[in-house]
Amino acid sequence: MGLVAQDRLRAKLKAGDTTVRVLLSHPMHTGRAKDENGELIPAQFIQDIRCWRNKEEVLTIKCGTATSRNPYFSFVLTGGAVDDIILIRWVDNLGAKGKVETKVQ
């Protein structure tokens, strides 16, 4: 994969609720595409994404191969306060892992 771009995470307090937006950096190969030599690119895709707020687990996302390249998610958490810590971890089918953390603004 070469140099991996960073995962991005933003969390903002809006009208009493926390809006979380996350953009992961991942090729999400389905195992069906071919490279320039006509050979199949083996499947590599994120399977499991988990989100914590202040060490409390709030959301689990399970992905199949039909999730877009560089997956984007946006969701809302009830309540929250400025400086809450939002943590996201992901793991793909080959065991590669990632972690990104931010504070609510």
């Binding site: 069906r32 959301l59 689990t60 877009s68 997956p71 984007y72 969701f75 809302v76 309540g79």
Partner: peptide, 24 residues
């Protein structure tokens, strides 16, 4: 799609919609 299921979300009580994402 060859495998119809694209995504599955497990919610907790603090989660709220809307939920946005991109799929193939």
């Amino acid at each position: 799609n060859p495998f119809p299921l694209a995504m599955s979300l497990d919610f907790t009580s603090v989660m709220k919609l809307p939920f946005k994402t991109m799929i193939k």
